[in-house]
Design a protein around this nucleic acid. Structure first.
Lengths: 190, 190
DNA sequence: GACAATGTAACGAACGTTCGGTAATATGTC
DNA sequence: GACATATTACCGAACGTTCGTTACATTGTC
């Protein structure tokens, strides 16, 4: 069951950190207990429906964060497009700790079940994608151009996280983000 | 313990398919038993060291496949660079079933343990990367240019797989691969 | 009959979950 | 303000199930 809107943020962030580190199957209630400092039974007090409910609360929380700190600022036409894009890069660099932290999208290998969670993630992805497309069109890209650029950008974000986790090279993610900023700037200057 | 080199290929491919679908934690011996048609104890006859050994055999097998069908052909200077690159694209499109199948690199969220497996994957990644760099230099890229192009390519491969799994859009992976082919062709023509 | 391959049946451990009850905090009543 | 009463937060101990694994018997092959 859904939690009250204001479920303790500290608690949910602790859960978030564990899920993104271990994936869904790899996350055990014991791990969540250690990570939050709460006993298992206390976790079930906050999330009566259990582990899946804990993940859902995390995904809902992340969704709100993404909308608040990424999507809404991207669409704020009071700020210059160039600034909005570089602000977004800064935000996601912090969000992923310069690539040292995983993306939930990447790490959750959800099977047929958990369709609700998958749908929310898909919805967020599309919202982010559309905000980028909007920005692209705003700076003069055609719809197709903007769509391809936006898809490519999000693909690179996810891919860079995978490769950085694999190689341990701490600069992979950052380098790609700098490249994207330069490309965008180059488009603006042409 | 490592298996004899010629461990039944059909068996290992069945294991591979399950691991790439469910990840390591999500893969249970029961699943492996169902997927291979062997009883659990029969699996332990083939892999006395258990689940981790089964994964290792899969990773070793995949490593051989990658070297045989991707890296070696990439370095075969008897073939034209353009052809080698498009052959590689065709190979990995088949390998990932046009993006419908996951990459083990992506799906294995291996913790501190399993260092040996992680190292092998890292080694394979570097071999692939270096083969691409070699190809890039061969067609006239500078070392830096070739390195950035190669890193970017592998990042896009992994990222496209993540995004396609998320959205279910069956064309995501294929589209990126076509884009990469065009970009490479464009470089050759300039 | 030797030996590899497979099967049956069970093992202890860890899993996610539940229960009964205690501490802490808020609410109501005078 | 004092005290009784709900309400919420938390905990220890156990639950049934499934996990990965193993002991041992049976089958197939040469």
């Amino acid at each position: 069951m859904a939690q009250q809107a204001n479920e303790n943020t500290v608690l949910i962030e602790a859960l978030f950190d564990i899920f993104r580190n271990h994936g869904y199957e790899g996350t055990t209630i014991s791990l969540l207990s250690e990570g939050t400092g709460l006993q298992k039974s206390s976790l079930y007090h906050h999330f009566p429906a259990g582990k899946e409910d804990m993940l859902k609360a995390v995904v809902v929380y992340v969704s709100m964060q993404v909308h608040k700190h990424i999507i809404t600022p991207l669409l704020d036409t009071q700020e210059k497009p160039e600034k909005r894009f570089s602000n977004m890069i800064a935000t996601i660099k912090a969000f992923y700790s310069d690539g040292r932290k995983n993306c939930l999208l990447n790490v959750l290998n959800l099977g047929e079940a958990k369709a609700e969670i998958k749908e929310l993630q898909n919805y967020d992805y599309n919202a982010w994608l559309n905000a980028l497309i909007q920005l692209g069109k705003e700076v003069g890209m055609s719809l197709q151009e903007a769509t391809e650029w936006s898809e490519r950008f999000l693909i690179v974000v996810e891919g860079a996280l995978v490769i950085q986790r694999l190689t341990g090279n701490k600069l992979t993610f950052e380098k790609q983000m700098e490249y994207e900023k330069n490309q965008f700037q180059q488009f603006l200057n042409q």
